[in-house]
Every structure is written in structure tokens, then in C-alpha cells.
């Protein structure tokens, strides 16, 4: 019962954030909620063994989004159709359009740095790379944005 209550608290605290994170990492709102759901289902059965459920959710979302991108790329390669995009336009469409075309790791670093406000070391742990690699990925992503938006 206690575990259930804790899970409900986690859900109340983190679910919307998780959906938003998945939305930023995929660019597809409809997919984002399903991915967030999958992340919470993964955490539900092992909540008592996880020290940092919020961090676990974040990592799981990133992994699920990475897998989603790979599956989608394979599907796109087969069908040659346009990628998933938000139906509603945004005043930041130009920026988001470039973000949506960045390689996954560059995109994740930018989201982690500028939306999650994670420190470099934390982003490195999230991606399983060195802090220097995070810096390099961020630099490449920002450079692409500057070039594309100029």
C-alpha cells in the first residue's frame, strides 16, 4: 500500500514532466505520452529498489526516445514518408525544426542543458559519455542552430 502511494506521488509529481521531456526529445506529442507511460510502467514494479525515481524516469525516457528514433528511422527508410511533427504550429517553429533534425545525442544534450537545466556531469551520466563529449555535442548542436537560423 505504501509503495502504491509512493508511486502515485511519483506519478503526480513527474508524469507531466516526463511527457514534456519525451515531447522535446521526439517532437511528437502523441508518441510522448505513450513513452512516458512505458517509463512509469517500468518504474512501478521496482520502485522500492530505486534510489532516485525521478532520475530513473529521466534516464528511461531518454532510452525509450532513443529507441523510438531508431525504429522511426528504419520505418522512414522503408516508407520514405515525412517524419512525425506537431500538428500545431509554434512561434518557435524555425528553432524547433532545426532541433528536430539534430542527431539524437546533440538534441538530448540541448534539452538536458536548456530545459532540464542539468549540469554537464549529469548529462554525461545520462548519455554514458564524458563531460568533454557533452561539451562537444552541445557545441555542435548550437553551431548547427546558428548556421540554420542565420
Amino acid at each position: 500500500m505504501a509503495a502504491s502511494s509512493t508511486f502515485e506521488e511519483l506519478y503526480a509529481r513527474e508524469f507531466v514532466r516526463a511527457v514534456r521531456l519525451a515531447h522535446l526529445l521526439t517532437g511528437a506529442n502523441d508518441v510522448a505520452e505513450d513513452l512516458a507511460q512505458d517509463a512509469f510502467l517500468k518504474v512501478r514494479d521496482r520502485l522500492d529498489r530505486i534510489d532516485n525515481p525521478g532520475g530513473y524516469i529521466t534516464t528511461t525516457i531518454v532510452n525509450l526516445c532513443r529507441n523510438w528514433h531508431r525504429s522511426r528511422e528504419r520505418e522512414l527508410a522503408r516508407t520514405q514518408r515525412a517524419g512525425a511533427r506537431d500538428a500545431v504550429s509554434s512561434p518557435h517553429e524555425d528553432v524547433l525544426d532545426v532541433v528536430d533534425r539534430l542527431p539524437f545525442r546533440q538534441r538530448t544534450v540541448l534539452v538536458a542543458r536548456y530545459w532540464l537545466d542539468l549540469p554537464e556531469a549529469e548529462i554525461a551520466r545520462l548519455l554514458g559519455c564524458r563531460p568533454g563529449t557533452v561539451k562537444s555535442l552541445a557545441s555542435r548542436g548550437l553551431e548547427t542552430l546558428r548556421k540554420e537560423l542565420s
Binding site: 522535446l24 506529442n29 528553432v95 534539452v111 536548456y114 530545459w115 542552430l145 546558428r146
Partner: peptide, 18 residues
Amino acid sequence: VEERLREAFVDRAERTVV
């Protein structure tokens, strides 16, 4: 670009339908 990026992320996040 960084400020535009922050604003774009906040905008997309706030438009997320749950």
C-alpha cells in the same frame, strides 16, 4: 541562440497535451 532555444523548449513543453 541559447535564449531562443530555451524559449522554444518552454513553449513546446507548455503546449504538450497530456
